[in-house]
């Protein structure tokens, strides 16, 4: 259940680029087409590429267990709720856009009409975009990882042992004593 040398190397090269592209879509959600949902889906595609190019139980389960992604998803939802509640505390109501045109973070005054676009505008919208991006990334990654873990795939060692078993009548006895290929 892996892609071999070419697939693995292509995956290793492409996954950082996919992550950067997804992050770009998330943070530019309020001035260009895109947003939290689309960017999160793009980043989850990178996780899916990691899954098909590497062994899950060999590589991924040890470094990024499913629980971490559940934590990421919950963190996104909590960030959204906290930003929504901050509107009550600071402004006038739930989800009030209190950062807009305040001069601080994401508070630059925006030009009316057609303009080239400024990243630090729009108040709480970039923060909510970021929260939704984190949440969608975690959710789709959890779904992909859980459905992939249901396959009960073999690890590299088990697959090698199986290949050696099936190839055993063909090789000589001396080679078999050393055990399998490699």
């Amino acid at each position: 259940m892996t892609l071999g040398l070419i697939g693995r190397n292509a995956g290793r090269l492409l996954v950082p680029l996919i992550f950067i592209f997804g992050f770009y879509i998330v943070v530019h959600g309020h001035i260009t087409p895109g947003g939290g949902f689309q960017g999160g889906a793009v980043i989850a595609t990178g996780v899916a590429l990691l899954l098909v190019s590497y062994y899950y139980r060999d590589c991924l389960e040890r470094f990024i267990p499913i629980t971490n992604f559940k934590l990421v998803e919950s963190a996104g939802l909590m960030l959204y709720i906290c930003t929504a509640l901050a509107g009550i505390v600071v402004g006038s109501g739930l989800l009030f856009n209190w950062l807009n045109a305040s001069g601080g973070l994401f508070g630059h005054p925006v030009a009316y009409g057609v303009n080239p676009g400024d990243l630090f505008t729009a108040g709480t919208i970039p923060i909510l975009n970021f929260a939704i991006g984190i949440e969608v990334f975690g959710a789709l990654s959890v779904v992909t990882l859980i459905m992939f873990a249901g396959l009960q795939e073999k690890t590299q060692q088990e697959e090698d042992a199986e290949a050696a078993e099936s190839a055993a009548p063909l090789v000589s006895k001396r080679k078999k004593g050393k055990g399998g290929r490699k």
Binding site: I31, G35, A122, T124, I125
Partner: peptide, 17 residues
């Protein structure tokens, strides 16, 4: 809302709930 993207301003500000 200050956002250039009208869809983003609807999704996250007018209809944030």
């Amino acid at each position: 809302t200050g956002a250039n993207n009208v869809v983003a301003s609807i999704v996250f500000d007018y209809r944030g709930f």
